[in-house]
């Protein structure tokens, strides 16, 4: 008997000349959140599509809840829930119609399908929008409907595709709350993400993949040990006090403060107590701040540490501007996404 809810060994997949997966192993224990961290094109989606029986691997094997994804695909499909870009709702149908259809396809009676739909729509705060076509939904509502649709059959294994990409910080917190609740009720969640913050907030274990290979597998804590701790960033309200703030940070952390961008100083810190100490000292020195945040390294920095090059980049240590879709043209330098949206939950 297996002890894993999700287990994949040596998955390989090519699309024509392109090698999407070059031997990926994934293991997730029941009732845990497993994050697959990687840039676009790393093989995250291909891995999940194989696990969800949507495509077949060229080599390797995978089991969900002990069922083989090829030989027992039917059983696997009765076990899993799929969201986001893996499996979409119908935009022409209303939220309620989408949910009822899935209930009917899962052999619920008409009444049960309706009740289950209403229950989930309420849980995801979509009751008011239930009778509107899904194409009129906002991005966040659409994300919630996708997730609700995947939960109709009470799946024990749930695949979440970048569940918070493009959501504002409050909505992200809500989504994280949902994931925690699902796991609290016994489900296993595999989520893909581009944010170490998200993996850190939710995951029990993280698999980092790049160009179809696993480059790290660890707990978030272990991963942070490897890639370095958090960064404390201060933006003084008065730009003239920048040097004072830098000196202060240096005293607190024992490391030399750097300026990642205009008017901002940052230092690496080892533990959370650095934040309270910095707040106290800033107050004592009379330095007002516009921004004071503690955040984890970005995906870019994780990759830089793990493989010595920017995510998704073929050259070692180049500018990785295309690694993160949210990281647009404006960032220019590699530090641009230090202040990307993912840092928000730890901002004070």
């Amino acid at each position: 008997m297996t002890t894993y809810a999700i287990e994949a060994e040596g998955l390989q997949k090519s699309f024509g000349e392109t090698k999407a997966l070059a031997g990926v192993d994934l293991f997730a224990k029941p009732g845990t959140v497993h994050a697959v961290l990687g840039p676009n094109g790393a093989g995250k989606t291909t891995s999940v599509r194989i696990l969800a029986t949507l495509i077949r691997a060229d080599a390797g094997s995978a089991r969900i809840g002990g069922y083989d994804v090829v030989k027992q695909a039917e059983r696997v499909r009765a076990t899993i829930g799929l969201t986001g870009q893996y499996a979409s709702v119908d935009e022409d149908l209303t939220g309620l119609e989408n949910m009822e259809l899935i209930g009917r396809l899962l052999d619920l009676s008409k009444r049960d399908a309706r009740a289950r739909a209403a229950e989930l729509l309420e849980w995801f705060d979509l009751t008011e929008a239930a009778k509107r076509p899904a194409k009129t939904y906002s991005g966040g509502m659409r994300r919630r409907l996708d997730l609700a649709a995947s939960l109709v059959g009470r799946p024990s294994v749930i695949f979440l595709d970048e569940p918070t990409t493009g959501l504002d910080p409050a909505k992200r917190e809500d989504m994280w709350g949902v994931v925690r609740q699902l796991v609290g009720e016994g489900s296993t969640v595999l989520l893909t993400t581009q944010y170490l913050e998200e993996a850190d907030a939710l995951a029990d274990e993280v698999t980092v993949i790049d160009r179809g290979r696993v480059i790290a597998h660890d707990t978030p804590l272990g991963l942070k040990r490897v890639v370095g701790g958090q960064t404390l960033t201060v933006q003084p309200a008065d730009p003239a006090r920048l040097a004072d703030a830098a000196a202060l940070l240096q005293q607190v952390s024992g490391s030399k403060a750097e300026s990642p961008r205009q008017g901002v100083v940052a230092v690496p810190v080892k533990d959370d107590s650095a934040l309270t100490e910095t707040v106290a000292r800033l107050h004592a020195a009379g330095i007002g701040v516009h921004e004071l945040s503690l955040h984890l390294p970005s995906l870019d920095e994780v990759f830089f540490t793990l493989v010595g090059r920017r995510a998704g980049d073929d050259k070692p240590a180049g500018g990785g501007a295309h690694a993160d879709p949210d990281d647009g043209e404006g960032s220019g330098n590699g530090d641009g996404d230090r202040n990307a949206s993912a840092s928000a939950p730890l901002t004070v």
Binding site: R75, A78, L101, D107, E119, L151, G153, P155, S156, I158
Partner: peptide, 29 residues
Amino acid sequence: TTATTTANPLAGAAGAGKPFTLIRHSAAL
């Protein structure tokens, strides 16, 4: 908290091979 999501191995697992099931699913679609 009413929306439980615990594993239910019976949800939809029953006989996708049976003709009546196929007709019911096809009718829903």
